[in-house]
Amino acid sequence: MDGAAGYEVDGKLVASPEIAGSGRPEVRTVDAFGQRSAPVRVEERPNDDGWRRAVGGWLDDFDDTFFARRYHLSAREGCVNPSSGSNGRLVLDMPCGNDTAVLRARTLLRLDESPELGRVVVVTDAAGPRGKLVLDLVPGTPDRLGPIPPADAVRVVVDDSVAPGTRGAGVLHRFETVLTDNGVRVLQDGTQIAALPVVPRWREASVLIGVTPLAGYPGRVEIDAVGISGSRGPEDEVVDVPVVAGTLRVLEPEEAAPGIGVARAPLRGVPSARLRATVRLGDGGDLNAAVAQLGSAKVPLRPMVSGWTATEGTELTLTGDLPAELLTTDGPDALTPFGLCRARHRPR
């Protein structure tokens, strides 16, 4: 209501008339002088399950604890902590402040041939006041895209600039990105809030869900459900083991890697392993010929996505297959050194 300084919901003063819960609360507007309006009974938002049928693919209600089998979490270690809430939701606690978590679903979005090509649904409270939800759809399997996505990516951003004033703190909303043969529509709880004149040229893509908590310390985001059309779930079982390189920057070819290594225990006896590293490019950065050094082995790295614009701030996910000699059951306990470096020429 225009002129309202706050609201009184069942006798409690709040900043927004929208609250989590059930029933029909009594709401009054309160102005700057403390004057209250006549009470209004607010209807509970209907629980529309039609979106589940519209997805026609993979649905995740976070009803089990095997989170890492379904998503790769890209975030500062220790600053983004996933857990299962008592209400059956994924809870991302962010105690460090000013953090963003990016979930890459291991299930790919696969487009159909009908007028509606595909749909991705996220039910979350991330897009509340001064929070943000970023949905990236991109060919390949990068872990982050950074501020400048590749040209063929589809990026949807929902924050205070999109349908402002319609989201309350701590309240879940359903955000649907619908890809059609004449553009992309963005829905909030079934109502269109944005449109993009973009038709993807690819037929399948990774789904990256980036969430930034509401302003405050510490931060917290809840995700209640994710739906991705065209696929029934992850096809390969993958185990992620986080590692930290000996240096937090990419070394030049003539630089010696620091004498810091990583444990080889996760590699012992596995059928195959792949190193993934997401790096942020500095001014004039170029990683067209990058290698990872793990002990005496040097692993050529390649970008997970083509079509990047190599400008300052770009985040690029590189990957390389580890050689068989690193996967044996014998050998050293640690691989030293471990670092990322540029190469003068890409190894053949």
Rank of each mutant, 00 (worst) to 15 (best):
K132L: 07
L133P: 04
L133G: 03
D136N: 09
G140C: 03
G140Y: 07
G140K: 06
G140M: 03
P142C: 00
D143G: 13
R144Q: 12
G146V: 01
P149S: 11
P149W: 13
A151Q: 09
A151G: 00
D152G: 05
A153T: 05
V157C: 05
V158H: 02
V158G: 05
D160N: 06
V162I: 13
V162R: 08
V162M: 11
V162N: 03
G165Q: 01
G165L: 01
G165F: 00
R167K: 06
V171M: 11
R174T: 13
E176P: 02
E176Y: 09
T177V: 09
L179R: 06
T180L: 09
D181L: 09
N182C: 07
G183W: 01
R185A: 15
D189V: 12
T191P: 04
T191E: 15
T191F: 15
I193C: 04
I193M: 07
I193P: 10
I193T: 05
A194M: 13
A195C: 06
A195H: 12
A195Q: 08
L196F: 10
L196V: 08
P197C: 10
P197K: 08
V199H: 08
W202C: 11
R203Q: 15
R203K: 11
E204M: 04
E204L: 12
S206G: 10
V207D: 03
V207S: 10
V207P: 13
G210S: 00
V211H: 04
P213F: 00
P213R: 00
L214M: 08
L214W: 07
A215I: 10
G216F: 07
Y217N: 12
Y217G: 14
P218A: 04
G219E: 01
R220Y: 03
E222M: 09
V226H: 06
I228P: 03
I228C: 01
S229K: 05
S231I: 03
P234Y: 00
P234E: 01
E235R: 09
E235L: 06
D236I: 13
V238W: 09
V239Q: 15
V241P: 14
V241W: 15
P242E: 04
V243Q: 08
A245F: 15
G246R: 00
T247K: 10
T247A: 15
L248E: 13
L248M: 12
V250E: 02
L251E: 00
E252A: 03
E255S: 07
E255R: 01
A256N: 15
A256S: 15
A256D: 15
I260Q: 10
I260L: 09
V262D: 04
P266S: 02
G269W: 06
S272E: 12
